[in-house]
Simulated scan of single mutants.
Amino acid sequence: MRSAVMLGAEQVVVIDNVPERLAMAEAGGAIPINFDEESVLARLQELTRGKGPEKCIDAVGLESHVPRSIDSVYDRVKQVMAQESDRAHVLREMIYVCRPGGILSIPGVYGGLIDKVPMGPLMNKGLTVRTGQTHVKRWTDDLLRYIDEGLIDPSFVVTHTAGLDQGPEMYNTFRDKQEGCVKVVLKP
């Protein structure tokens, strides 16, 4: 998932360009937006009647890439010249689309320097920014209990199962977005 937004308490939009992930999000009740096929900004404006989403999540971080975007080209050039380490297209996009008083969460990993962060809109909208790695240890016990009790079933994300010896091959399948691969479970 590249990014997601909350339009209200129950309505989630997933923004990506991988058909399998978009289909999975739609099957789970989310509204998919394929950024290769439509304008994210225009679609979110339509869905929120011009207000913007209440909550936005940058789930990709430093590896954001949208080849047709001018700011992505700028980021790539800066990286080649060793003047920037991360690509912040999704972060910028989420700042622009989030409604005033909204919440911007950034679990997407950033490792160094970024340029052209729209601080004016971030500040003038009064956005609350939450950052940091996902707190796996904080939530693991609760989530495992929910799975054990049958309250949630995360198995819908598993698209491939393979032996541990097939790990490198399955990594390439996942990385190259082949065979509809979204999540691999390796078994010893």
Rank of each mutant, 00 (worst) to 15 (best):
K183G: 00
E169Y: 00
I15H: 11
L62H: 12
Y96V: 01
G101C: 03
H89A: 03
K78H: 12
D75T: 05
D71L: 07
R49G: 00
K51Q: 10
Y96S: 02
H135Q: 14
V90K: 01
V18A: 11
G8A: 10
L144A: 15
K51E: 06
S3R: 05
P188Q: 07
F35A: 07
E84C: 15
V40I: 14
N17P: 05
F174C: 02
P188Y: 14
Q79A: 06
E46N: 08
S64Y: 05
E149L: 00
Y96K: 06
R87S: 15
V80H: 07
K51F: 08
V184S: 01
P168H: 05
G126E: 11
N34P: 08
E63K: 11
Q79T: 02
K187L: 12
A88E: 06
E46Q: 15
G112P: 08
A88I: 06
P121I: 02
E26T: 05
P53Y: 11
P107A: 03
H65L: 14
I31D: 09
R130Q: 13
D58Y: 13
D36Y: 14
T161W: 06
I152T: 07
M123H: 13
S72D: 14
E93Q: 14
G28V: 10
G28T: 09
Q178V: 00
L22E: 05
V40A: 05
L143K: 03
I147S: 06
I33P: 11
N172M: 03
A88K: 09
I70S: 12
L113H: 01
N124E: 08
